[in-house]
Design a binder for these strands. Structure first.
Lengths: 269, 269
DNA sequence: AACCGACGGTTCAATATATGAACCGATTAT
DNA sequence: ATAATCGGTTCATATATTGAACCGTCGGTT
């Protein structure tokens, strides 16, 4: 392990529960010598990545991170950060994929990507996703703030014959999403389109958006469904990471239970 | 120079003008061997501090910065980040100091600190700073968005006999602040208080707030004024840094011109 | 008041670790 | 075809990292 890695590892020990760490505690957490740990902390401090609380002498994350994060956001905005993931997802599924972001109480389309594989394909041309009628929307209802469900239940606009029109029908669909970890829309928004989606999360593990795959109903079968779900898991992990978020453990468990294990994907190279 | 520092230095080469950097260019910027540079980049990449643009193979700042920055903000909110600076400023000046933040079109008091040095001292008990009558407010008018001045000129409330009451009087005071880099209020808000202030800046170099010193008028003299201004410069640099911002070059030049050189302060240890 | 343990920080000999010249294969410009 | 870049890799060399032992200080205990 390079000394650079050893130094950088120290930064990973900070968390909401442990925002400040003294030299000795850091030394124990890292399992390294005190002198080594001290020099590493010094190096990090020079660049403002960490700083010392002048009162307690404890170390904490530093101000330089704010500038760097701002520059990162400027360099790779959320749309760009999701781009390669939905392209890859379109490739492995052969279907149209898209990402949406939650802003306030609205789920906005951010970007979409069509696959070349089939001549018939779904086309995403909506700017705002109806929460009760789309797979991405169901993800929002299942994993977003509680008030969303009330709002959605108050406005159950019918799009197709399958669109859930009663509060109970919607609640049951949402419960299904909460259980499986995947949003599912079988022709509820457009009659001949079947969609699956997975939630995306922010830094606090709160719902931040959704990634989804829209498949032509006639070629939707259990094998494709499984391929899509596996692809969604990988895409959600990837986009969530690129947005600086983290997928909560319980969601990972739901995915694993739904897919029956074997959800481990190769780590991005 | 430790190899940790050498690795971390690589991150400082990213900027708005140069958001992505290839291996060879990075090697040249750092003035180091290609293999070394490559290994350092790898180490940074493992921790998500940088990542590679998959298309161009160029390196750019990574997603981990978003999480770290968020945790930093959570650990050290703006008020706490300004605390030690205004304490030190109160010490070296022997006067009452305070910080304010710009939010929308309003300048809010964030924190203040009284010095023990004199038995008579200024007390800051306002929550919102009137822009035309306080030193901090004049900083906002001088360095904030242009619409602030119009708003302030439309509401020239008189506080003391010295409060500027005409648009011209205010415009001239603001011009003075723009020239010198310091806000100055000689009894314009409270008759027996003389205040000086310096602007604070965000990541983009935009006005973000002000730090100021309120002195009892009877002991205000050129020597104290100079001490205060020097202290303000150090405090503004410090707070701005802790908020993840940067003091624009032209402001530094103004301070230097006003103080006649010798504004270099010891760097924070 | 003397003691103890834990803290942050420092030193220096021993050696584990970083280094860079040379090399590779792929692209691109000439 | 040729040459110049590019990103990436190798391995002998030596330099920069390491950790045991050390300080001085602090807060609690005897």
């Amino acid at each position: 392990m390079s000394s650079v890695s050893k130094a950088l590892e120290l930064m990973t020990f900070f968390s909401g529960a442990r925002p400040e760490i003294g030299l000795s505690e850091m030394r124990r957490l890292a399992g390294r010598d005190k002198a080594t740990t001290y020099r590493h902390l010094q190096a990090l401090q020079v660049f403002g990545l960490i700083e010392q609380n002048p009162e307690t002498k404890n170390y904490r994350l530093g101000p330089a991170l704010l500038q760097l994060a701002q520059l990162r956001e400027q360099t790779v905005p959320r749309k760009a950060a999701a781009r390669t993931a939905i392209q890859r997802l379109a490739e492995v599924t052969g279907e149209t994929t898209h990402v949406s972001v939650m802003s306030g109480n609205t789920l906005y389309a951010l970007d979409s990507c069509e696959s070349e594989k089939h001549s018939t394909r779904a086309i995403i041309d909506i700017a705002i996703f109806p929460l009760h009628a789309t797979a991405s929307g169901l993800c929002a209802l299942a994993f977003g703030t509680a008030d969303l469900l009330e709002m959605a239940q108050a406005d159950l606009k019918p799009f197709t014959a399958s669109t859930p029109l009663t509060q109970d029908a919607l609640a049951s669909a949402v419960a299904d999403v909460r259980r499986s970890g995947f949003g599912k829309s079988l022709g509820t928004f457009e009659a001949d389109i079947h969609s699956l989606s997975a939630p995306l999360f922010d830094q606090d593990g709160h719902f931040a958006g959704a990634v989804s795959v829209a498949s032509v109903a006639t070629r939707f079968d259990p094998a494709l469904e499984r391929t899509i779900m596996q692809g969604l898991v990988a895409a959600s992990r990837d986009i969530t990471k690129n947005w600086g978020g983290r997928v909560p453990q319980n969601i990972e468990h739901k995915w694993e239970a739904t897919l029956g294990g074997h959800t481990e994907m190769e780590h991005a190279t």
